[in-house]
Simulated assay, not measured.
Amino acid sequence: MHNRYITGTWLSMVKELENNKVQGVSLNLLFKVVVGNGRAVKFWLDPWVLPEPLLMGFPLLFALEKRKSCLVAKRVGFEGRWDWYRRPRSEAEIKEWRRLCRLLDEVSLNSNTDSWKWRGDEKHGFSVKGMKKLLIKEKDFSDKLIFKWVRWVPKKCNIFVWKAVMDRVPTMVSLQARNCFTGDVNCGMCNMGPESIDHLLCHCHIAIEVWNAVSFWCHTAPIFFFDVKDIVDIHKHVGAGKEKRKILKGIVWTTCWCIWKAKNDRRFNEIEANPVEIIHNIKSLGFLWFKSRSQRKGISWEKWYKFDVC
């Protein structure tokens, strides 16, 4: 597609197609026209007789063409007429002209309507799902974080932990970095260090007390984090069975949510952050969510409180 002849929103879409490539080929070149009557296909600008538009293969002739956006039907068949600024006369122009004539000798129009064909999957045709698979296939995710949601905790908890791991949570430090805040950036709970997501969930002394209490409640080795990314995999390293690890992962998510909520209560409602109260909220919310959202609906509060879940 020749960008000089496209404007506005369509230009942005064409640029996206050109910038994304599959096996070194721009996505826009994976669309090809199946020519019928030639009345909806641009002779120079659309890929119809070659995998790419003719302007790319015959740039000298394209420069001589008066009507750059002319249709195939105006250049091929009974209606076919050429409209040059001047006839091709240089050796290179004549060479291109002969090559184009040989190419067009194999073209014949018919009464069918012109249509587009997706070359990325000729068996099944175009679909958004197929396009997504094609693009993902080209990406290297070997160094990317794999984030699996916990089904029995609400979406808000999953989203919060996901955003926390990517450092997209509005802590004081991140707000200051975005020029959204110019005041005191110290932790809203302990007031003993800049409120980054790492400090809030991993290094704040109140958070550390909470994590120690959670590990004691769940009968695991002490839980601690160097940074927030450790949260995603901590359940794998606590020496528990498969089922218990799944439950513990949800409890870790719930703990993150309750710490965040306690910080907000301290900053906006002036409610003192109390580790004992946070632990109580973790157990209560965890029980409510686990009982109502998991397949273990028969679990009792007594068993949950003792973490007798397996």
Results as ranks from 00 to 15, higher is better:
217 W>T: 12
183 G>P: 11
180 C>F: 06
190 C>M: 04
85 Y>I: 05
111 S>N: 09
195 E>S: 03
170 P>H: 09
215 S>P: 03
204 C>G: 11
89 R>K: 12
125 G>A: 00
145 L>V: 11
209 E>T: 14
107 V>T: 05
84 W>H: 12
160 F>R: 15
138 E>N: 08
179 N>R: 14
129 K>D: 01
157 C>E: 05
106 E>C: 08
110 N>A: 02
159 I>W: 01
85 Y>W: 04
200 L>K: 07
225 F>H: 11
194 P>S: 14
209 E>V: 04
107 V>I: 11
195 E>R: 03
90 S>P: 01
216 F>P: 00
92 A>M: 08
216 F>K: 13
170 P>R: 08
201 L>S: 06
142 S>H: 13
81 R>L: 05
171 T>W: 01
98 R>W: 10
172 M>E: 04
214 V>T: 07
106 E>N: 14
119 R>N: 15
96 E>D: 10
215 S>C: 07
187 C>E: 07
86 R>F: 00
164 A>I: 08
154 P>M: 02
188 G>M: 00
123 K>P: 01
214 V>W: 02
156 K>E: 07
153 V>W: 04
117 K>I: 00
135 L>G: 11
174 S>W: 05
132 K>G: 00
164 A>W: 07
188 G>S: 11
107 V>Y: 03
112 N>G: 04
173 V>C: 08
93 E>S: 12
101 C>T: 14
221 A>Q: 13
81 R>T: 10
133 K>G: 14
85 Y>P: 00
174 S>G: 09
189 M>S: 07
92 A>I: 00
139 K>F: 05
122 E>F: 02
91 E>C: 01
87 R>T: 02
183 G>C: 11
128 V>S: 13
162 W>L: 08
164 A>Y: 05
143 D>Q: 14
126 F>Y: 15
164 A>K: 12
219 H>I: 00
177 A>F: 02
216 F>H: 12
207 A>W: 07
186 N>L: 09
153 V>C: 08
222 P>N: 07
101 C>N: 10
171 T>Q: 05
164 A>G: 15
191 N>M: 08
157 C>N: 09
204 C>T: 09
185 V>C: 10
189 M>K: 07
130 G>V: 10
207 A>D: 06
166 M>G: 11
206 I>E: 01
109 L>M: 08
89 R>E: 14
227 D>W: 06
172 M>T: 02
180 C>K: 12
225 F>A: 10
195 E>T: 08
164 A>L: 09
209 E>F: 03
183 G>W: 04
227 D>S: 14
196 S>P: 08
203 H>L: 00
195 E>W: 02
216 F>L: 12
213 A>H: 10
207 A>K: 10
90 S>T: 15
138 E>S: 13
85 Y>F: 04
203 H>I: 00
128 V>I: 15
204 C>A: 06
142 S>C: 09
104 L>E: 14
116 W>R: 03
129 K>N: 01
143 D>T: 09
84 W>D: 13
